[in-house]
């Protein structure tokens, strides 16, 4: 149906849309600038990869990826419960450094910089999802389910409470809202989704290494969320499309692959800075970044 190239792009768009949606939940709706989000992506990827290589069936590994990331999400929230603003951003960034460092150094588990090759394609019993077209269907199903779930959640009263916590957590607590519990739930849900995205990433590429889960990746996801706009779910999805498609134009222009890599990063950085300077609410943002 789709060309192999289009399928590839769409799969990546789906994965990054999940990352954007989940970061938007915690940043745009709950007001937590979690620069460590990419660590959950990594935790999900490594968990799923290692479990399936040890023989665990894919659906369980996928679930475990989300759950383990979620547990880390809880502990991170516990650590930063009293922290705000740029300081929160720094601590969460520090967290992502520590996790990256573990991926790099715990070679007994993760093979360090060598990464983990040969990650199996998803399979359930006799049925193996070998083709990319099939994989795309899997990714799309998960993206659609996640989007519907988050849409329902953020439109409900619960969504309003999260936004109240974002806008003024003290005033929210004085109305009787359990602020820490709400922040923790949001963070855990966000990291769960990021973990799932990590698993999808690992099983698609069949190879992961620590460099996919470091600084430049968080900038990519943050750019998606900011360009899409804080507090807008469709913004995150649309921005994921834009952000992933634009660099592909570079490929068509015929630039050598050594150039495409850094050009793509430069493009993301310029986009991010440009949006912050010129249109800080991005495309569909309902809320300012603070």
């Amino acid at each position: 149906m789709f060309t192999p190239y289009a399928t590839h792009i769409l799969i990546l768009i789906g994965i990054y849309a999940l990352l954007g949606l989940s970061l938007n939940l915690v940043l745009g709706f709950t007001g937590l600038l979690n620069l460590g989000h990419i660590a959950f992506f990594g935790i999900g990827a490594y968990t799923s990869a290692l479990l399936t290589l040890a023989g665990v069936p894919f659906p369980l590994a996928l679930l475990a990826a989300g759950l383990l990331a979620s547990v880390f999400g809880f502990f991170l929230m516990l650590a930063v419960r009293k922290i705000k603003g740029d300081y929160l951003a720094l601590v969460t960034l520090g967290f992502s450094f520590v996790v990256y460092s573990i991926f790099l150094n715990w070679t007994g588990l993760t093979r360090g910089p060598l990464g983990i090759p040969g990650i199996p394609k998803p399979s359930l019993g006799m049925f193996t999802l070998a083709s990319n077209q099939g994989y795309l269907v899997l990714v799309l199903i998960i993206v659609v389910l996640t989007s519907l779930f988050l849409w329902r959640l953020t439109r409900s009263r619960f969504g309003r409470v999260l936004e109240a916590v974002r806008d003024d957590d003290l005033a929210a607590s004085v109305l009787g809202k359990p602020v820490f519990r709400l922040q923790a739930q949001s963070m855990m849900l966000s990291s769960f989704i990021a973990g799932i995205a990590g698993s999808l990433f690992a099983h698609y590429l069949t190879y992961i290494d620590p460099t996919s889960f470091f600084l430049s990746e968080i900038i990519l996801v943050l750019t998606i969320v900011i360009i899409g706009g804080l507090g807008s779910l469709r913004g995150s999805v649309i921005a994921a499309v834009i952000i992933l498609v634009i660099p592909e134009v570079l490929r068509f222009v015929g630039l050598p692959s050594a150039i495409v890599g850094p050009m793509r990063q430069i493009l993301y950085a310029v986009l991010l800075i440009g949006v912050l300077l010129l249109k800080p609410r991005g495309l569909f943002g309902r809320v300012d970044l603070t």
Partner: peptide, 30 residues
Amino acid sequence: RPLKQRGSSNAILLVASIGLMILLENLMLL
């Protein structure tokens, strides 16, 4: 300075500085 003039918080300036870092690093790479 332009960011500060439009009232950006310290968190935004931090994010912008990370973006700047990625930009310059990759420029050197290029």
